Computed example of a mutant assay.
Amino acid sequence: MNTQQVADRLVALCREGKYEQAQQELYADDAVSIEMEGAPGAGPGKVQGMDAIREKGRRWMESIVEIHGGSVGDPVVAGNWFSMAMGIDATYKDMGRMPMEEICVYRVRDGKIVHEQFFYDVG
């Protein structure tokens, strides 16, 4: 798949809430995931490899009490990179209800996502 196809597929799966399927289908085994520095509940700022990315996602899902809504924007593609806006309105065990919006940036190599990085306001 080219970058546009990977981006379109990721958006489709995220809009359906199929994040684990997206990771299994679209991510390289050695992918890197980077969160914002100082983000509450984000855990380690940078993890590498699918086992670590899945664990990070599992811990995040366990921190959620209820999801009230969310959004996934259309992708913007440039070469091997794409970005999209995402939003979630959720109640967390340790932070209460907190709506959040972020820009997600991805790099694609050989038809797989090899890098993801999230940008959002902290605090």
Rank of each mutant, 00 (worst) to 15 (best):
Y92K: 10
W60I: 11
M50C: 04
C104E: 14
G73F: 01
K18P: 03
E16V: 07
Y120L: 02
C104K: 03
I88G: 00
G45Q: 13
D8C: 01
G17H: 12
G69Y: 01
D74N: 14
D74F: 06
Y120N: 00
D121Q: 12
Q21W: 02
S63V: 06
P99A: 03
A28V: 07
Q21P: 04
A90F: 09
M84L: 14
M36W: 05
D8F: 00
R59F: 07
Y92C: 03
E20Y: 12
P44G: 06
I53H: 01
I34D: 08
W81K: 15
D110G: 04
V32A: 07
K112F: 04
Q23F: 12
I88R: 05
Q117E: 15
D74K: 15
R9E: 05
D121V: 09
D74Y: 12
I34C: 10
S83G: 15
V72N: 00
M50V: 06
D110K: 11
M84I: 04
G43C: 11
M61C: 04
Q24S: 15
M86K: 08
G43E: 09
V122H: 14
F118H: 13
M1Y: 02
G43R: 13
V47R: 02
G96P: 01
Q117H: 11
E35I: 06
M100C: 06
V6T: 03
G45K: 08
F82Q: 01
G17A: 09
W60M: 11
G87L: 00
D30P: 01
H115L: 15
S33L: 03
A39G: 12
M100K: 04
R15L: 10
E55I: 03
C104F: 09
K18R: 08
V105R: 02
E101Y: 06
Q5S: 14
I113C: 00
R58W: 03
G38R: 06
K56E: 06
Y19K: 13
M36K: 10
A22L: 07
S63A: 12
T3L: 10
A52P: 12
M100L: 11
V114Y: 04
G17M: 13
I53C: 02
F119Y: 15
R107M: 12
V114E: 05
D29Y: 10
I103M: 12
A28S: 15
Q48H: 02
A7F: 13
E20N: 14
H115Y: 15
R109K: 11
G96S: 10
A22S: 10
V72F: 02
A78N: 08
L10C: 07
D89W: 05
G69F: 02
Q21M: 10
S83T: 15
G70C: 07
Q117I: 02
V122W: 15
G38V: 09
A7H: 03
K18H: 04
V108M: 03
R54H: 09
A39R: 05
E66Y: 10
Q117P: 00
